[in-house]
């Protein structure tokens, strides 16, 4: 369990993440950003809860739905906003956009446009920690849809046989685009697959931040102790469409409304109020403060310089 200040900070990160994605969603609707983006709204407690259990030097790999992971990892929303607007000051100098935000030096090994694309990379980071005798670990975030790609099976097996310090964190948000997890797999829980590779599998309520935090902390302890990987499944839900273009034909309004009722941010705010960490409704101030912070980030980003056209030809090789 974290101290009070840290707990308020976790709530603040979730709010930042939510406002960031809601802002980006609006910008797309207004046609002010091009390309595409995937929104993390509804899943914030997973990234924030899991990443809170990391320590200095640990790394994460992320997905196409990566803004929330980046914010929880401590990336600067100004540079993230600049990247979305394609500016020279963005994390990828305008070359990457939403799906490729990364800060390799800090240990955020990248969002990824390829489903399952980061699973090998996370194992590689874990391999490096192990070989170098470092007491660090990697969290590999991926959606439940990715568990049907070959690389999921290949990497879980390797991580298990080599006891790599990696936590495979599956965010089961019930859908891979339009495909419901019920139709895409014939098992009850994604975590059931862990036994096939000889590692523990746990399923937690993803909308309860503390559950995610505790389970991740345990998995990380195991990883650091040289006992190998864990497959963690966080049950969660994405409120918005798969990406900016989605008519939501594959699910009902009622279903979305039901999930919205167990909102992870609301929940955690209530927990903090119960603990006396926050006064009643004090979180609303935080809500407004983070909303303004995101407005400011995009406002600032819009005034940043464009990259030089010739820079498009640079960075192919190191």
């Amino acid at each position: 369990m974290q101290n009070d200040g840290k707990r308020v900070e976790l709530l603040r990160q979730m709010l930042l993440s939510r406002h960031f994605d809601e802002k980006v969603n609006d910008l797309y609707a207004e046609g002010k950003v091009h390309g595409t983006a995937h929104f993390y709204v509804g899943q914030e407690s997973v990234a924030v809860g899991a990443i809170a259990a990391l320590k200095e030097g640990d790394v994460i790999t992320s997905t196409h739905r990566g803004h929330g992971h980046a914010i929880a990892f401590g990336l600067d929303v100004d540079r993230m906003a600049a990247e979305l607007l394609g500016q020279a000051t963005g994390y990828c100098h305008g070359k990457g956009g939403s799906m490729h935000i990364a800060d390799v030096g800090a240990g955020m090994l990248g969002a990824n446009g390829i489903v399952g694309g980061s699973m090998g990379i996370a194992c590689g980071a874990a391999w490096a920690f192990k070989r170098r005798g470092q007491d660090n670990a990697a969290i590999c975030f991926f959606g439940e849809g990715a568990t049907n790609e070959g690389i999921f099976h290949e990497t879980l097996n390797m991580a298990a046989i080599w006891k790599l310090p990696v936590v495979f964190l599956c965010e089961n948000n019930q859908y891979g685009m339009s495909m419901s997890v019920k139709k895409a797999t014939a098992i009850e829980n994604i975590s059931d697959r862990a036994s096939a590779y000889g590692m523990p599998g746990v399923t937690v309520a993803g909308s309860t931040l503390d559950e995610v935090y505790n389970a991740t902390r345990e998995a990380l302890e195991r990883a650091r102790a040289g006992e190998g990987p864990t497959l963690m499944e966080a049950i969660t839900y994405r409120y918005l469409g798969h990406s900016k273009s989605d008519a939501n034909l594959y699910r009902t309004r009622e279903e979305i409304a039901t999930w919205r009722k167990q909102d992870p941010i609301q929940r955690f705010a209530t927990v903090l109020e119960g603990e006396g960490v926050l006064e009643r409704d004090e979180w609303r101030k935080l809500d407004e403060e983070t909303r303004l912070r995101i407005e400011e980030a995009f406002e600032k980003a819009s005034r940043e310089p464009d990259p030089q056209p010739e820079s498009a030809l640079e960075d192919v090789y190191a």
Binding site: H34, G35, E83, G86, Q87, C92, G94, K95, G96, G97, H100, D306, P307, P309, E310, S311, A312, L313, V316
Partner: peptide, 16 residues
């Protein structure tokens, strides 16, 4: 196309 991956920024993309 230039011998590079496709960049995100609209102008960079047009450039290659």
């Amino acid at each position: 196309g230039a011998d590079v991956p496709i960049p995100y920024n609209r102008d960079l993309e047009a450039h290659v």
